[in-house]
């Protein structure tokens, strides 16, 4: 096992840095954990019988993930073929009569699993950015002013624990009522998901920013006063850098929440995305459904993990305190 791993790692130049003990710690131990999990999953799955058949084990899930990918490729081929036919038709028409009116129609095939992943990712990032754009400046202002902090803290504490499912009907109605346009830039479902996600993931960033800003050392504030820094310079040069670690702690929590909230919101509201995929498969109720849902569960987990790693990388990049261990 470890010799194979060594061979695998050689091209990356990692072997020289890692001794055997470190290698075991870094690779073998997590691998063992995953293997044990797969084993227990396999045994457990065989013993659970549902109305849709046996609970999917690792093998079925692997099979279904291949199927989903194949479906996606077939759908793409269909789409290409559709456009090809349309273009041919239009070309023929124009050949007969150069003034003929030709039509372009968009392909309206069913969204595949991969498409739904894309939709969910775009929605979660948009919602997260919208929330951060509000939460960081608001957190800075609230953190700098004790009176504002005391005024808004009860409101923040009240809304922080609210589940997305409670917001969703309200948001749907409000979006339907207010977002009226003949040629909307975004789909209503996208706006609804985005606002629900933003409302739920606003709070950790807001609170952490406020706390980070309000706990700037008195000495640094005095430096700023002695230098007579303007309010803006004070915020840019002193407040934001010193609150950066806390702001990022908040952002990471927010992104995690945003991802969890999005799946639930999509499921309930039938908005496009991974949540809808899961719900559709559940309603579909074929013998493959549970396996396909399990693929979605694993993909949701992987994406959530990747998003967090990306935030961690950003955090390490902007953090000035290199002695602090980030994980």
């Amino acid at each position: 096992m470890s010799s194979m791993a060594l061979k695998l790692l050689k091209p990356f130049g990692l072997v020289e840095k890692l001794n055997l003990a470190a290698l075991i710690k870094a690779l073998v131990v997590p691998m063992t954990g995953i293997l044990i999990f797969l084993f227990i999953w396999n045994i457990g799955a065989r013993n659970i019988h549902t109305s849709l058949g046996e609970f999917p084990g690792p093998a079925q899930v692997y099979e279904q993930s291949k199927n989903l990918l194949a479906e996606h490729n077939r759908e793409r081929q269909k789409e290409a073929a559709f456009y090809q036919r349309q273009d041919d038709r239009n070309a023929k028409k124009l050949a007969k009569n150069p003034d003929a009116e030709i039509k372009f129609r968009a392909y309206t095939g069913k969204a595949t699993f991969i498409d739904q992943i894309g939709t969910s990712l775009v929605t979660v990032l948009a919602g997260f950015f919208a929330a951060s754009l509000i939460a960081i400046p608001a957190g800075i202002v609230i953190g700098l002013n004790k009176t504002l902090y005391s005024a808004f803290n009860p409101v923040i504490q009240l809304f922080k624990p609210v589940s997305p499912l409670a917001w969703l009907p309200l948001v749907t109605m409000v979006v339907s009522a207010l977002y009226v346009s003949d040629d909307p830039m975004f789909a209503k479902s996208f706006v609804t998901s985005l606002i629900t996600v933003s409302l739920c993931c606003l709070w950790p960033t807001l609170l952490n920013t406020a706390v980070g800003v309000s706990s700037i050392s008195a000495d640094l504030n005095n430096v700023s006063k002695v230098l007579r820094l303007s309010w803006l310079t004070h915020v840019i040069k002193i407040v934001i850098p010193s609150a950066i670690p806390m702001i990022f702690t908040g952002l990471r929590l927010s992104l995690g929440i945003a991802w969890m909230v999005l799946i639930a919101a999509e499921m309930l509201a039938q908005n496009p995305g991974l949540g809808k995929f899961v719900w559709d498969e559940f309603q579909n109720g074929s013998s493959n459904s549970l396996g396909r849902i399990m693929v979605a569960v694993i993909v949701i987990g992987l994406i959530g993990f990747m998003l967090d790693r990306i935030m961690l990388m950003l955090q390490k990049k902007v953090s000035w305190d290199k002695t602090q261990e980030l994980r």
Partner: peptide, 19 residues
């Protein structure tokens, strides 16, 4: 009646911006 750079202060714990 207010702080200013013409009365610069050297603080006990240096108070340098760590970043």
């Amino acid at each position: 009646n207010e702080p200013g750079p013409e009365r610069a202060v050297v603080f006990q714990n240096h108070s340098l911006l760590p970043w």
